[in-house]
């Protein structure tokens, strides 16, 4: 007997393409198409709905990077290209997310170096890249243009646009055909508003990934989880201004009390556990890109996602 679940969805999450291979004018060895969902995450009946992608986060100036990661990755953290290469070949990430933390230095002006870093990472890995540009409105425009230019043809995902700060990044994305991350603080209406603003200045829907802002487990995750679910279900009910894939980056995870103050003997395991539980829960709530910083989290998430993806019950439940 078949049971009718009747969620009543009518909408579909739009597609976004990450990375461009040779065939599409880039140099990436892989590209991904995310989105396409039509129901609750992991209930898709059509097999090819992609498993969430795992993005490994690196930076070009590790001063403020978590000591847990610096201990684990060693000297790599001082060389973004080598770090990206190791993340690709050894850690086996799906994506690399490069934070241009060098631009956070006070009175940063060396815009040229931004291009050099991006280019070096692009040539070190064949994976699609997410680039996190500046955090300072004064240099946004130059930094984002430089990133966009350095990654021309590669279909980067550029971050991060916010309600008060989206023009520079949007300009760079439009000029060089990249996609952008649109972040709003844990609120479905703000997420929608920002997407509308972006649409109004010409950013196409299939170039936007929603970042609903993920608070760390124990420090706001309860809100992020529901914000993600609400965004996903509004999209499925037909709201096209929210029908974009979501990215989850619980960036505060490694600095919260429970992780930072863990017993030194097991601090790495605690960090991994915290990232892992957040990643699984975020994927269950609909996030399609999960960003993490500890290399050991990658394999664990991958194994779990693969097992979450298959469900042969479609015939029984419709």
């Amino acid at each position: 007997m078949a049971y009718d679940l009747s969620f009543g969805w009518t909408g579909t999450i739009g597609d976004v393409t990450l990375g461009a291979t040779k065939a599409d004018g880039g140099t990436r060895s892989t590209s991904y198409r995310i989105g396409g969902g039509t129901t609750i995450p992991f209930l898709e009946e059509t097999a090819p709905s992609p498993t969430p992608l795992i993005a490994f986060e690196i930076c070009d100036n590790p001063v403020l990077w978590s000591p847990i990661i610096k201990d684990y990755c060693g000297d790599l953290v001082n060389n973004p290209a080598e770090w990206a290469k190791t993340a690709t070949n050894d850690y086996k990430a799906d994506l690399i997310r490069l934070h241009l933390t060098s631009t956070r230095a006070r009175n940063f002006t060396d815009i040229g170096s931004v291009g050099t870093v991006v280019e070096s990472v692009l040539s070190a890995t064949g994976l699609p890249l997410i680039i996190e540009g500046s955090n300072e409105p004064k240099i946004d425009s130059e930094v984002f243009l430089k990133c966009g230019e350095a990654g021309q043809g590669e279909r980067l995902l550029l971050g991060t646009a916010e309600a008060g700060r989206y023009r520079s990044i949007a300009a760079a994305a439009l000029a060089f055909n990249h996609s952008i991350i649109a972040q709003s603080p844990i609120d479905i209406n703000l997420a929608k508003q920002l997407n509308i603003l972006l649409r109004e200045i010409g950013v196409p829907r299939d170039h936007i990934v929603i970042d609903p802002y993920t608070g760390s487990l124990g420090y706001g995750f309860e809100y992020s989880y529901s914000a993600m679910e609400r965004i996903r279900f509004s999209a499925l009910k037909g709201d096209t201004d929210l029908a974009m894939p979501m990215i989850c980056s619980a960036a505060d995870t490694l600095t919260i009390k429970e992780v930072r103050e863990a017993d030194p003997a097991s601090i790495g395991d605690v960090a991994v556990a915290w990232e892992f539980y957040t990643g699984i829960a975020a994927a269950a709530a609909g996030a399609e890109i999960i960003c993490i910083r500890h290399p050991k989290t990658i394999g664990l998430l991958r194994e779990a996602f693969a097992d979450m993806k298959t469900h042969p019950d479609a015939a029984e439940v419709q």
Binding site: E222, A262, S266, D269, V270, V272, A273, W274
Partner: peptide
């Protein structure tokens, strides 16, 4: 559970079961 997952699991449960 090991200490890391033990705390993460209890914290996730607390988060998901607080009134949003």
């Amino acid at each position: 559970l090991m200490p890391g997952p033990a705390k993460a699991a209890l914290t996730l449960r607390q988060n998901i079961y607080t009134d949003p």
